[in-house]
Design a protein around this nucleic acid. Structure first.
Length: 427
DNA sequence: TCTGGGGTCCTAGGACCC
DNA sequence: TCTGGGGTCCTAGGACCC
């Protein structure tokens, strides 16, 4: 049997690259893209990285370097990024039959035998030419090694965006100069525990005894070790496994104290979450409502309750879920706190075609279910995902909203998904 | 003033059963 | 005085990811 080979294709600075495709003024200058609520920096162009702006940093901590270097700051535009991602993925599928979409900007491929460096280089060029998005490709006999190779392809520009660690004559030297924390699946905690065992570099970890790692770090550690040694333990997941739960939450633009405003914000989250499960043909059998004060404001009293509720009969009805969620919110709400966030989690998801009805259910068709489906269809056709045309009164109106709506002050147009925001070419 | 959101997997521990 | 052991299922919380 021939050895399997994987590739990890990763879009470079994905959100920034998407912005640049439609706005050439952003080329060759430092740019950053912000998280929801314009809070943290979640994507940086190479020029911004070179300025030392760290990933995940709060925007307000970087104001000085941003102003001094005239860094362009953009709010996130997930509608655009989602569409660009779909374009990249469809090109990958044209070239390779086994594709696992791992995240919005990454995909694992299982490579055919004849797929060499030349083929990888061609693939890169095609994605760039057809979408405007630059990608790096890492290859290896396991997913972990492909991911690690990708890490080097991104860091070392002389590799030309391609790398295969196992083929490299100095692979041991390279691994000896890489911290274990750079490995996929090794976070702060595992890195510290490895350090306690006397291993700081990837090479030291690679040469560790499987029995020792199993004992000290459990199955998670052993799997990493084996993958690092070329024993494939992770398969390609071409068909995404069924979703376990759906969450919808947002920080508020500013603090909120009144129950009415919290209700309005939560109603919007319930609307989004229930629309999502309907889209997947799922019903929820339990839900969780959470509330949170601003954990960064140590001087303010903190309160962060979560409450769960099981449903006798699973549902995806927006109004039904809104009603229950509102009662749950009432039961955990306490006045006198300044709240920063509320959210809903829909769990115990089952398919609408095959769920276990309650013993005590009266089998009636739910007329509201039809209303939801009609609203979904209208919103899909005429609204945009962030701003649906039809909403419930409990979700408030543009005028009624006060503090809870999130900030998004520097969003670029939805170039590819909204007729009204198409780019305009002038001759 | 300002500090994201949405997931998965694993483990430990309690409840419960025989 | 003496008070089992092994299994499953569920949940909460931690760790990690992008």
């Amino acid at each position: 049997m021939s050895t399997r080979r994987f590739a990890l294709v990763d879009c470079n600075n994905f959100f920034c690259s998407c912005e640049r495709v439609f706005n050439p003024r952003l080329l060759k200058v430092p740019i950053v893209v912000l998280s929801n609520n314009d809070g943290c920096i979640i994507s940086r162009s190479q020029e911004a990285k070179n300025l030392g702006i760290p990933m995940g940093a709060p925007l307000h901590e970087q104001q000085e370097v941003i102003q001094k270097n005239r860094v362009h700051v953009l709010s996130s535009n997930y509608t655009l990024y989602g569409d660009m991602s779909a374009r990249v993925m469809s090109i990958l599928r044209e070239e390779v039959s086994s594709v696992e979409v791992y995240s919005i900007d990454e995909a694992f491929l299982e490579l055919p035998e004849k797929f060499d460096e030349k083929a990888a280089s061609k693939l890169r060029a095609k994605v760039l030419r057809w979408t405007g998005i630059p990608v790096c490709i890492g290859m290896g006999t396991t997913k972990l090694l492909a991911k690690l190779s990708n890490h080097y392809a991104k860091k070392n520009h002389s590799y030309g965006g391609l790398f295969e660690l196992e083929n490299h004559p100095f692979s041991n030297d390279i691994m000896a100069s890489t911290r274990t924390g750079d490995l996929w699946g090794v976070g702060k905690n595992l890195e510290r525990r490895l350090q306690h065992l006397g291993m700081t570099t990837v090479l030291e970890f690679k040469n560790a005894s499987p029995a020792c790692i199993r004992k000290e770090l459990g199955v998670v550690g052993e799997r990493l070790l084996r993958e690092l040694n070329g024993i494939s333990c992770m398969n390609l997941e071409e068909i995404p496994p069924a979703r376990k739960g759906v969450m919808a939450s947002r920080s508020f633009g500013s603090s909120v104290e009144s129950l009415e405003e919290l209700e309005e914000a939560l109603a919007n989250h319930v609307a989004r979450a229930s629309e999502r499960i309907r889209r997947f043909g799922l019903l929820a059998s339990h839900l969780q409502v959470s509330l949170q004060t601003n954990r960064f404001k140590k001087e303010e009293p903190q309160y962060a309750p979560t409450i769960g509720h099981a449903l006798l009969t699973p549902t995806a009805s927006t109004s039904q879920l809104m009603n229950i969620a509102r009662k749950m919110l009432h039961s955990i709400y306490r006045s006198g706190y300044r709240y920063k966030k509320t959210g809903i989690f829909l769990g115990g998801l089952v398919s609408e075609d095959s769920f276990q009805p309650s013993l005590f259910d009266i089998p009636v068709t739910n007329p509201r279910g039809d209303i939801d489906k009609i609203c979904d269809a209208i919103n899909k056709k005429l609204g945009d995902p962030k701003n649906p045309l039809i909403t419930r009164a409990s979700q408030g109106t543009k005028q009624s909203s006060k503090g809870w709506k999130m900030r998004s002050q520097r969003r670029s147009p939805r170039y590819t998904t909204d007729w009204r925001e198409l780019p305009i070419a002038r001759i």
